[in-house]
Amino acid sequence: MGRYVVKRLLQAIPVLLVIATLTFFMVRLAPGGPFDEEKKVPKEIKERIEKHYGLDQPLWKQYLSYMGNLVQGDLGPSFKYAGWTVAELIGSSAPVSLMLGLLAMLIALSIGLPAGLIAALYKNSPVDYFAMSGAMIGICLPTFVMGPLLILGFSSGMGWFAPLGWYTWSDMVLPSLTLGLYYAAYVARLTRGGMLEVLSQDFIRTARAKGASERRVMLKHALKGGLLPVVAFIGPAFAGIISGSFIIETIFFIPGLGRFFVTSALNRDYTMVLGTVLFYALLIIVMNIIVDLVQAWLNPRTRLE
């Protein structure tokens, strides 16, 4: 397994280099530069600023020097925030996004899995309908509606939580819940579907015929197989939570990477755009490897390689 992981990681290197190259040239194609502001400055001054950041060089030279630095692990300075490097900005904001993602995932699983299991167990009963309607509402209610609703109820209304920010532990509750409930809905539906499929298979009938208790059938025999679709969903979803948390981070004013991901493109902060894109690419690659490993463990029919 070690060899497999190393091999997958090595395969990722050319992928990342291609992504870096494409992104490098794509951000440069967009009109407007990082130092264009509403109020124009004399040409001489703008030239000085661009020279300082090496933007006066021909594009291919800039590309080579960027890639040279990248290979050495240097993501360069942010063009927007004076004195901050891209690595510093990612270093301070990525843990926030990861924490938010982890908490949201935890909530999604701790609500979605039991709900899906119960729904599968009491198939086509009022309990099932209730859980699945709840899940449907969860899926249909976008985070930008859910977030403000939760703020309205628990912050403006009850005053239990701050309406925004990421300063104390209690600040984490509302955003994680907003994001978690949304994914819980998916997890519940996928769990129910996966479980129902497995429960209809022959080996379950065999287990029941041998007199295994319903509890044992569910947890010991069916669960592992029933969770496969959930696992396949969680990996990419986790990467999606991290990169797609822009909306949550904006609603709740969380200093995460999602906000940089969007604003750096609007600011034409070239190095920051590249840094965040590469970070996400790496994250998705790693998540996919983990998913493959977990799937191989859950399902004896798939093997690594």
């Binding site: 403000p148 703020i151 403006s156 005053g159 701050a162 309406p163 925004l164 904006t250 609603i251 004013f253």
Partner: peptide, 18 residues
């Protein structure tokens, strides 16, 4: 100083006493 660039978020914060 809070660098809140989204106007709706800022308004909610003020109305909640933040």
């Amino acid at each position: 100083f809070y660098p809140i660039d989204k106007k709706d978020t800022e308004e909610r914060a003020a109305r909640a006493g933040f």
